[in-house]
Design a protein around this nucleic acid. Sequence first.
DNA 1: AATGGGACCTGCGCGC
DNA 2: TGCGCGCAGGTCCCAT
Length: 266
Amino acid sequence: MPELPEVETIKRDLEKAVLGKKITEVCVHNPKVIREPAVAGFKRGLQGARIKNILRRAKLLILELSNGKSLTIHLKMTGQLVYPGGAKNSRVAFHLSGGKILDFNDQRLFAELRLLDDWHSLKFIQRLGPEPAELDLAQFKVMLSKKKTAIKPLLLDQTFISGIGNLYAAEILFQAKINPLRRANELTNKEKELLFLAINDILKAAILHAGSSVDDYVRVSGGKGGYVKYHKVYDRQGKPCLVCKTMIKRISQGGRGTYFCPKCQR
DNA sequence: AATGGGACCTGCGCGC
DNA sequence: TGCGCGCAGGTCCCAT
């Protein structure tokens, strides 16, 4: 479930842990997670390269290498990067200069690793909407007014705005006091502003606390993110709203769980 | 254009 | 106790 705050945390952790190190050997324990090129080419392209730069776009991690290629990692739901690693159940083990191992773990094998000549040309990258931190209020208002869809699934649409997932969509809408079923173009001017503020506030706070350790998310050190204790609605169905004590409701939108307070969010 | 569903996976929690 | 089932969600893909 890593979303923008979790992936940003991992990016910052990686910068401290492995930036500048050389990849001396790559052991692929499960080739399923390597999407391109084939395993042999993947290993050949990585071995001997140095990790020159680490970036994040939406929920995608990008490791730019000294040989001009880039390793992109999408953790999807259960992907983890752990350093120093060496776990038996890792899917890919990156041996680094200094003798330690960067483990890529992924229980459910949804994650996607790619070694690319140019990550900018990745279709996923080209279709991404703006990063929340680069979003401008006036522009955001226009974007919302063009969409008739329900606001909650719209926040999950990476081509609309990038980086928000199911957990933070719920927390953002709670802070903005907006019902997840509301149509984007029918939000009032004031609500659009509140939403804009909530996106920035919630994501910033979550990054400050190193993300939310629900399910499998851990930091590169193996430690947990501390934002779970600030969750107001996510996974709290049946429990009292922390503001008004009304029972938090869970509904399904687009096949995904939506959590909200029916009284606070109108 | 918008919406819904299935696919990809596996561990967990639930009901019986 | 044990089994089988549904569920969790990021993204893509297809159908309507």
